[in-house]
Design a protein around this nucleic acid. Structure first.
Length: 423
RNA sequence: GGCGCCGUGGCCGAGUGGCUAGGCAGAGGCCUGCAAAGCCUCGUACACCAGUUCGAUUCUGGUCGGCGCCUCCA
C-alpha cells in the first residue's frame, strides 16, 4: 500500500499488513455548518479506514473537533461556547448523513486542556517555548527542522505585520494565549487564565489517542502551513516522533477558485445533501484523486448523479460472472495511492452484482444495490397500463404512463411485465 | 518575492516512453406500438517551444496560463 506523502514529496510504502495503522485527521473548527469542501477530508479518512481494514490492517482513526479558537470568539462574541456546541452538533449530524460511520475517537479541544497544558510545560522546560505576558510562544529558532514539511524557508517567510512586542521572533507562534476581554472561555494554567493557541490541540489530541507516533496524518492542503508545520515542530521538539506520513487532500474549487467563506462561494454540506443526496456526493468525491483539486459545479454534480443512476441500472439488470482478475485490478488501483478515479472506472465495467456491491460498499455505496420499491398505487397504475397494452389500447397506455411519471416514477416495459424506476 | 500543485478530446477526469481509461454530453443504429433502459458503432485528446530518444502526451529545460500556501488566516 503506497500513499503520497507531503513530507518526502513522493509515495511512501505503508508497513505490510497485518499491523496497526493509526490515523489522525484534522477535523473542523466549529463555528458554522461545515461546507462541502470541509467534508472531503472526513470522507477520504473514512474511506481509507475502510479500505485499510479490508486489506487486513488494524486501523484506529481519530478526527478532532476544534471548539476553542479565535474564529469562534469572533463569530459569537461572549457566547462562543454555545456556538461551538451547536456547530459541533451540526457537524456530527451532517457527516452522519453521509452514511460512512464515525471515526474511533472524535475528541474536542476543550476536553483535552490538561494534556495541552502538560505538553506546553514540557516545551517550556526544554527551552522550546517561553512565557510572555501570560502568552506562551514556540521558539521556532530552536527547532532546526522547522519548514521541512511545507518547504518554507524561514528567511523567505512574509514579514509579520503584527506589531506585538511579546514574541522574541516574529515567526514564533502561540501555544497558549492569555484570556482577553470578551472571551467567554478560559482555563487555569501555570501562566494564568487563558486558552490554547491554534495548533497545540492537535498535537495533544493525537498523542492522547494514538501515542507518540502514528502512521498517517491527514488534512486539507491549506493546513500544510502553518498548522501542520507547527504541529510537527511542537511534537517533535517535545521528543515525539509524531506522524510518519502526511496526506493532504486537494481543495474544492468553484469556477477555478477555492471554495471558502471569505470568497463567499460556500455550499454547506447540509444544503448539498438536501439538493443531491449522499450517494451523489460520495460518487462525486470518488471521481477525483484525493490529492488533487476538484471542481464543484452543477455540471460535475450532475455527472456524478448520472453515474449513480448507471450503477443502479446494473443492479436492475441481470448479474453476470466477473472476468478473471477484476478484484485484483481494483486492489491494485486502491493500493497505489488510493486511486479512486481508477477504481471507479473499473467498477463501471462490472456486471457481477456481488462483486460490484462489495466494491461499492468500501465507499459506503452498497445502497446502490438496493431495489427501490414503488408504492402500491403506482404498481396498480402500472398493472392497468399493462392491461391496456395487452388490449392494444395505446392511448390509454400512454395516458397511464404520463400519470405514473407525474407521480415521480418511470414505467418501463420489460420482457415479461414491467419495471418501475424512480425518476 | 518564496514554497508547492497543475494544464489531457464539448465538459469532468485517470494513465502510460510505442498498446481501448472511464463517466457525462453529442451523432447514427438495434430493440420498442411509441418510449425508457440496455446494447453496438462514431470523437485519431494530451498548453506552447526546444532537447533526449528509433519513437514523447508520458523524461529534461524553458515559456505562457490556472490554483493553493507564505503564522491565527479558509
Amino acid at each position: 500500500m503506497q500513499l503520497y506523502d507531503t513530507l518526502t514529496r513522493g509515495k511512501q510504502e505503508l508497513p505490510p499488513a497485518p499491523g496497526p495503522v493509526r490515523m489522525y485527521t484534522c477535523g473542523p473548527t466549529v463555528y458554522q455548518r461545515i461546507h462541502i469542501g470541509n467534508a472531503r477530508p472526513f470522507v477520504i479518512s473514512m474511506w481509507l479506514r475502510r479500505w485499510l481494514a479490508e486489506r487486513g490492517y488494524d486501523v484506529t482513526l481519530v478526527e478532532n473537533i476544534t471548539d476553542v479558537n479565535d474564529k469562534i470568539y469572533d463569530a459569537a462574541p461572549g457566547q462562543s461556547a454555545a456556538l461551538a456546541a451547536q456547530a459541533a452538533q451540526w457537524y456530527l449530524e451532517d457527516t452522519e448523513r453521509l452514511g460512512l460511520g464515525r471515526p474511533d475517537h472524535e475528541p474536542k479541544a476543550t476536553e483535552t486542556i490538561p494534556e495541552i497544558v502538560g505538553l506546553i510545560e514540557e516545551l517550556v522546560r526544554g527551552g522550546f517555548a517561553y512565557e510572555a505576558g501570560g502568552d506562551v510562544y514556540f521558539r521556532v529558532a530552536r527547532f532546526p527542522d522547522y519548514g521541512r514539511l511545507s518547504g518554507q524557508r524561514l528567511d523567505q517567510l512574509e514579514d509579520d505585520e503584527d506589531p506585538s512586542q511579546l514574541k522574541e521572533d516574529p515567526r514564533d507562534f502561540a501555544l497558549w494565549k492569555a484570556t482577553k476581554e470578551g472571551e467567554d472561555t478560559a482555563w487555569d494554567s501555570p501562566w494564568g487564565r487563558g486558552r490554547p493557541g491554534w495548533h497545540i490541540e492537535c498535537s495533544a489530541m493525537a498523542e492522547k489517542f494514538l501515542g507518540p507516533t502514528f502512521e498517517i496524518h491527514l488534512g486539507g492542503l491549506d493546513l500544510v502551513f502553518p498548522h501542520h508545520e507547527n504541529e510537527r515542530a511542537q511534537s517533535q521538539a517535545a521528543g515525539r516522533e509524531f506522524a510518519q506520513l502526511w496526506m493532504h487532500n486537494g481543495m474544492l474549487e468553484f469556477v477555478g477558485e477555492k471554495m471558502s467563506k471569505s470568497v463567499g462561494n460556500v455550499a454547506s454540506l447540509h444544503d448539498v445533501l438536501e439538493r443531491w443526496g449522499r450517494e451523489t456526493i460520495l460518487v462525486y468525491f470518488l471521481t477525483g484523486h484525493w490529492s488533487k483539486p476538484v471542481d464543484f459545479s452543477e455540471d460535475t454534480m450532475e455527472a456524478a448523479r448520472a453515474r449513480v443512476e448507471s450503477f443502479r441500472e446494473v443492479f436492475r439488470g441481470a448479474s453476470e460472472p466477473a472476468r478473471e482478475g477484476e478484484w485484483e485490478r481494483l486492489v491494485a488501483a486502491l493500493d497505489d495511492d488510493f486511486n479512486t478515479p481508477e477504481a471507479l472506472a473499473l467498477m463501471h465495467g462490472w456486471r457481477d452484482h456481488d462483486l460490484l456491491r462489495r466494491a461499492l460498499d468500501i465507499f459506503g455505496l452498497a445502497s446502490l444495490a438496493e431495489e427501490q420499491e414503488a408504492p402500491s398505487e403506482i404498481v396498480k397504475l402500472a398493472k392497468r397500463r399493462q392491461e391496456a397494452r395487452a388490449a392494444r389500447d395505446w392511448d390509454e397506455a400512454d395516458r397511464l404512463r404520463a400519470e405514473i411519471e407525474a407521480a415521480g416514477w418511470e414505467a418501463r416495459d420489460a420482457a415479461e411485465g414491467f419495471q418501475l424506476v424512480p425518476r
